[in-house]
């Protein structure tokens, strides 16, 4: 039996339910157990990335997609692969290159001479977890092939609609330091990602442990699935049952709406950002054993959910302003319900 605790990524007050407060329903307790199982499994591979794993799983459970942006070698692909291997689900990886075509992702109809008809051959997008590695190396045309899939869980090829799996999760990676041969993701594509975050360099102690762990064999090779596809689907369903008060919905709207009025912002975040923030916060609350959302979960996820959707005007960008800075400032200024 898992006892619900009120904790955040930054720490916990170490409290537990003493029977007074209504415990979460059994489905939520089971869902939290699934989360902890997957997080622990990924943790075997990803040293010192507890926060990133929390966010990744929050996006997964909240029905969103994730864009990992970081320097080469920080573990973006490893994290994606670790997640894929932890879940007993289909996993495809697409290495995005400049000559990649939309049909290479979505699939293509090929004329079958024997049957004298066109037959659709599914592309790698027909999977449960898709790793779009170095997504910004493909042309915007190819990047846009993901729009419909990520937004509506379906693809349309040659006028025919093809439904994707119930669990369809895209993890895209991109390298922020290289500009040659890359194409920045269009705003519409950025908006489809529920979160964008970085992994960052881990502390030296953790890095030393990582060296030890990989001295002979990569831990990823020995990683085994710890959750079934059905369990992950039930995790997603459990997230939907987490309650959000009207006051906190208003707080979410104020935060997101604030980006549209902030100085130096050319294009603020869309209502899709509000939705993503709410669902991700619900997932995080579930992970923390709560059946309602508190301001802490919203604040923890505000930057990864909103910042990448904010388009700064060139002058502000040139002055050093960024979407992350705008959201952090909003978090400081917007009165948080207490």
């Amino acid at each position: 039996m898992i006892r619900p605790t009120l904790s955040t990524s930054a720490g916990t007050l170490g409290v537990s339910s003493r029977g007074g407060a209504a415990p979460p329903p059994p489905s939520q307790l089971a869902a939290r157990e699934i989360y902890e199982r997957i997080a622990a499994n990924i943790g075997k591979v990803m040293q010192g990335q507890t926060g990133a794993v929390r966010r990744l799983l929050a996006a997964l459970a909240g029905g969103g997609h994730v864009l990992l942006e970081d320097f080469p070698g920080t573990g973006k692909t490893t994290l994606a692969k670790a997640l894929a291997r932890s879940i007993d689900a289909r996993f495809k990886r697409v290495q995005f290159t400049p000559d990649l075509l939309p049909s290479d992702i979505l699939g293509v109809s090929i004329f079958n001479q024997r049957d004298q008809e066109f037959r659709f051959h599914e592309g790698p997008i027909f999977t449960n977890i898709l790793l779009a590695d170095e997504i910004n190396r493909a042309s915007p045309r190819t990047q846009s092939a993901l729009l419909e899939a990520m937004g509506e869980n379906q693809v349309s090829v040659e006028g025919e609609r093809h439904q994707l799996a119930e669990l369809f999760f895209v993890i895209a990676t991109q390298n922020p330091v290289e500009f040659r041969g890359t194409y920045p993701l269009p705003e519409a594509q950025m908006d489809r990602f529920a979160m964008q975050f970085t992994l960052g360099y881990i502390p030296p102690e953790e890095e030393a442990l990582l060296l030890t762990a990989q001295q002979h064999v990569h831990p990823l090779d020995s990683l085994r699935p710890c959750a079934t596809l059905a369990e992950v689907v039930s995790l997603k369903q459990a997230v939907e049952s987490v309650l959000v008060s009207a006051e906190l919905k208003r707080y979410i709207v104020d935060l997101v709406g604030g980006t549209r009025k902030a100085a130096g912002v050319q294009l603020g975040a869309s209502p899709r950002a509000s939705l993503a923030l709410m669902k991700s916060a619900q997932a995080l609350s579930l992970f923390e054993g709560l059946d309602f959302v508190t301001p802490d979960q919203i604040q923890e996820l505000a930057v990864p959910v909103i910042a990448h959707r904010v388009v700064m005007d060139p002058q502000a960008r040139f002055s050093g302003a960024s979407g992350r800075g705008v959201v952090e400032e909003l978090l400081k200024k917007t009165p948080v319900p207490a």
Partner: peptide, 16 residues
Amino acid sequence: WSELIRLHYQYRFDPR
């Protein structure tokens, strides 16, 4: 004050 803040949060943000 951990129990206090837990109950307060529930009072404030749990719609029930």
